[in-house]
Nucleic acid binder design. Structure first.
Lengths: 203, 203
DNA sequence: TGTACATCAGTGAACGCGCGTTCACTGATGTAC
DNA sequence: TGTACATCAGTGAACGCGCGTTCACTGATGTAC
């Protein structure tokens, strides 16, 4: 194995190990040596690849951005938010993205608390989609329906709901009394909640 | 001043100082000496009153519980959630509680990330109100309206929205593009969002 | 193809910083007589 | 009311633990000739 391959492999191993350990212990509780141990490398090896824990998270964030951009390159979708299916498409897309990148998303949220820079970076990820949604809302007003608040505020409420509900559902240890629902059922529930709130119509 | 008074005064000063420093630096970033400095006491004094930072937060949590119980002792309210005003009453109550205890709430959320015990404690605070709301939802189904999901899930979505939106609005540094709205206007927006989602009716 | 040297990924023990926590000390308040 | 001693809140310098980070070393890969 060439040196480059070797280095790339170790770097990848460290990133994968970090995701696993972040998911288990949380970003803030994770020590550098937790990551290197999980990756099966020596502590010093870490610094050949990252200047510290934050830089590793930056790298994970870049991977996330790349994944997000790829998702965004599927632009064929119904923009008419007076149709429940159009709302559902967005909810489902967010849900899937979150599920696939749960560990990194959780780590980013935790990092935000001690380093606000990550908060801004996290906002960037959803910025493009938020603009997309803003466009869809015009169909609602054009149909003579009234939004629950200004477009900006309506979108902000939607994101607070979807973001936090998704994170809570997927990441927090499920309490015993939580009903075991399929992804589709939960996505339906979110869709109905948001669709009704946006349009004032039943569904 | 008697010794008891003296001790009580220092303990109160430490708690107040902690709230201020938590609000400024965040709970996780705050060092013991930040608190004692803000309170104008020596570092060692802290340990006459609390075994550590977590115990101080426990004390703040007890204060919060007391405040919550007091609020709950105003039980006269319209339970019929087919009335927007009934929904608004709950939203406004939560909003006020959050505003009055913002620093502690934020600290608790941060503490939750590194110590899940606080998560459970935080849940307890809202548990009583959640049961109250569950009762109100029966008026919705009794009126022949359909909830967006099961009662448990509907309530969970409502709380994720209200909790996180309120925290975001009150605590995060307002971006320049955020419209300057009064409390009442924001409470109206949340009420409309939730009322529509719950009932499927326009409002 | 072979040899000699350079480079570099990885190692892990050791170092040292930051911060929580302790503890001997001070001076004021409380108690006994 | 006064005196002598006990108790306790508060002080801040010093200690020491935990963990991030370094660095001399190893062995394998790359390069020059």
């Amino acid at each position: 194995m060439s040196r480059k391959e070797q280095a790339a492999e170790t770097e990848a191993a460290l990133k994968e190990a970090a995701k696993r350990v972040f998911a288990e212990l949380g970003y803030l509780n994770t020590k550098i040596t937790d990551i290197t141990r999980e990756a099966g490398r020596a502590a010093g090896s870490f610094y050949n690849h990252f200047a510290g824990k934050e830089e590793l998270l930056e790298a994970l964030l870049r991977d996330l951005h790349a994944a997000g951009d790829e998702d965004a390159r599927a632009p064929e979708h119904n923009p008419d938010f007076t149709e429940p299916a159009a709302v559902r498409w967005h909810v489902a897309g967010y849900w899937r993205f979150y599920r696939e990148n749960a560990a990194t998303m959780l780590a980013l949220r935790q990092a935000t608390l001690v380093n606000e820079q990550f908060g801004r970076r996290l906002a960037e990820i959803t910025a493009a989609e938020q603009e997309d949604v803003a466009g869809h809302l015009r169909y609602v007003t054009a149909a003579g329906l009234r939004l629950p608040a200004s477009p900006e505020l309506s979108i902000a409420m939607m994101y607070q709901l979807i973001d936090n509900f998704t994170q809570w559902w997927l990441m927090s240890p499920a309490p015993a009394d939580r009903p075991p629902l399929s992804d589709d059922e939960v996505i339906d529930a979110l869709t109905r909640f948001v669709y009704r709130a946006f349009t004032g119509r039943d569904y």
